[in-house]
Every structure is written in structure tokens, then in C-alpha cells.
């Protein structure tokens, strides 16, 4: 990247443009395919935090569908591909707690005992972060400077919450967004029923779980639902729209970046 032609956002942390952290964005397959605007919101947030963003071309998926289906061989091959493409950067950031946890927590387990790959997976995992916690915990961002007028409710996606400890970080940043009011739903920390391939393997059970969740979302009387994982968001948005809800569904990064001009997930209105 040619620094002289790139506008450099100012940052209190890293005033020297030559020494900005080099962040590789792991877009995630769902954001890449279904909602690129989340990727661009992530790019803006990371750049505003004073980092230089790179998007390695050799990325598809973190391998989680194979991993959770018991296919370790394919998972390893995909994970090796990810590590090779990303390990040269200062940080690897994903707008997803689920993919983040896969890379940070499960890659080292996947390669445990492999003399060549385990150390690489561990070093790689050290540098992996979910987007919002990267902003708050690594780049010490307290305010993203966005203004969005909305009453929102936040769903804690399971992997981010329980594997990476992400709960307060998004709420802190949301509270700093001008015009945002958080209306907590009942049981925000209970699974939405997505579960990756679970939702198509057991559609009726998944439906029972997401029905409880959308009931709680409606019960919060918020006009917008936010979360940090596109899989859960697509599940909840799909159920909300099927049941005729007007609640708008967005990835938390869109609001934090002030980029809410795109139609919400699964569209707006009934």
C-alpha cells in the first residue's frame, strides 16, 4: 500500500502514520457474500481507530462448518490456508465472535501436538480479535464518533459471549453513539437457535428457540436489533420478518460506524 497517496486518519494512539498497526480483516464468509456493508463498516472503524486495513485475498471461511461437522481434515486445510494468509499482520480482526473464537480458541486446539503448525496457530491466535473487543480492548476506543438515532436491543451471540467474553464492550460503544438508547431484552445471553448447520439440520427445534428469542426482542420494545454475528442476525431477522415484525436488524458495526443508510438485514417493513 502506498502511504503517500492514502489519507491517514488521525489517532491519539498512533500518531505516526508509518507505525500504524497493520490489521488484516477477516471478512467472514457471510459478510462477504450477504452483507458487505458490515465489512466496510469494520474497515471504517478499524481505520478510525488508527490502523491500516488489509484484506488478504486468500480468504473464504474460517472452517467452522467443517469443524463442527466433525470433518477435521478439511478444517485443518482451511485453517492452514487462513494462517498462511494472515499471520504476517499485526492483528487479525473479524466482525464475528463466532469466527473470532474459531481462530483464536479452536485453531490452537486443532493443531495441538503438531510440531510445525501448533506454534504457528498459537502465534496467529494471539493476534486474532473480534471487531468490537479489538476496538475497545486493544485500540482503547471509547467513542466511535457515530450518531444514529434509534432505540436498540442487543443480542449476545453465544461464541462471542462465552468463548471471548464479549458483553460489556459493544454496550459501552453503543452508549457512546449519539442518539442511541439501549433497551435490554429478557435473556439477551440465550442462544437464538442458529447454531450454524444446526438450524437446517433441526429446523423445528431451531424454530422453537428463535421464536422465544424474537418474543423477547419484541418484548423489549426496541425498534432495532443489533448483534455482532451475521449468522445469528440472519436467523433472527428471518424469523422477525416471517412473523411480520417491523424491528430493523443490523450488525452492531453498522451502527458504531454510523453506516445505516443501507436497507436492514432482510429488508425493512413487514
Amino acid at each position: 500500500m502506498n502511504h503517500s497517496t492514502t489519507p491517514t486518519p488521525s489517532s491519539a494512539l498512533t500518531p505516526d502514520p508509518e507505525n500504524r498497526p497493520r490489521v488484516a480483516l477477516f471478512v467472514t464468509c457471510l459478510v462477504d457474500l450477504f452483507r458487505p456493508s458490515v465489512g466496510f463498516a469494520a474497515v471504517k472503524l478499524i481505520e478510525d481507530a488508527g490502523c491500516e486495513v488489509h484484506v488478504p485475498a486468500a480468504q473464504t471461511c474460517c472452517g467452522q462448518p467443517a469443524y463442527n461437522s466433525g470433518d477435521k481434515t478439511d478444517t485443518r486445510e482451511i485453517a492452514e490456508q487462513v494462517i498462511e494468509a494472515f499471520e504476517g499482520f499485526d492483528f487479525i480482526v473479524a466482525p464475528s465472535g463466532s469466527c473470532g473464537a474459531m481462530m483464536k480458541k479452536h485453531y490452537p486446539e486443532l493443531f495441538a501436538g503438531d510440531p510445525a503448525w501448533e506454534p504457528r496457530a498459537r502465534a496467529f491466535a494471539e493476534k486474532c480479535h473480534e471487531l468490537v473487543s479489538f476496538l475497545t480492548d486493544v485500540m482503547m476506543v471509547r467513542d466511535t464518533g457515530a450518531a444514529v438515532s434509534a432505540e436498540v436491543t442487543y443480542h449476545d451471540s453465544c461464541s462471542g459471549l462465552r468463548e471471548l467474553g464479549i458483553r460489556d464492550q459493544p454496550r459501552k460503544l453503543l452508549n457512546a453513539v449519539e442518539g442511541i438508547t439501549i433497551k435490554e431484552m429478557q435473556d439477551p445471553d440465550v442462544c437464538c437457535g442458529f447454531g450454524g448447520t444446526f438450524c437446517v439440520k433441526y429446523p423445528d427445534i431451531s424454530n422453537a428457540i428463535v421464536t422465544k428469542k424474537t418474543g423477547n426482542i419484541e418484548g423489549s420494545e426496541a425498534e432495532m436489533l443489533l448483534a455482532g454475528d451475521l449468522g445469528c442476525l440472519m436467523n433472527m431477522a428471518g424469523k422477525l420478518k416471517r412473523s411480520g415484525s417491523t424491528v430493523e436488524v443490523r450488525h452492531v458495526a453498522e451502527v458504531l460506524a454510523g453506516m445505516t443508510d443501507t436497507p436492514p438485514i432482510a429488508g425493512s417493513g413487514k
Binding site: 457474500l33 450477504f34 452483507r35 458487505p36 456493508s37 429446523p203 423445528d204 431451531s206 424454530n207 428463535v210 440472519m234 436467523n235 431477522a237 428471518g238 424469523k239 420478518k241 416471517r242 443501507t262 438485514i265 432482510a266 429488508g267
Partner: peptide, 9 residues
């Protein structure tokens, strides 16, 4: 069967 599928952008 139970929910709409959000379309890609």
C-alpha cells in the same frame, strides 16, 4: 420452512 432468508446485498 420457518423463517425468511435475507437476500445478499
Amino acid at each position: 420452512r420457518h423463517r425468511d432468508l435475507p437476500a445478499p446485498q
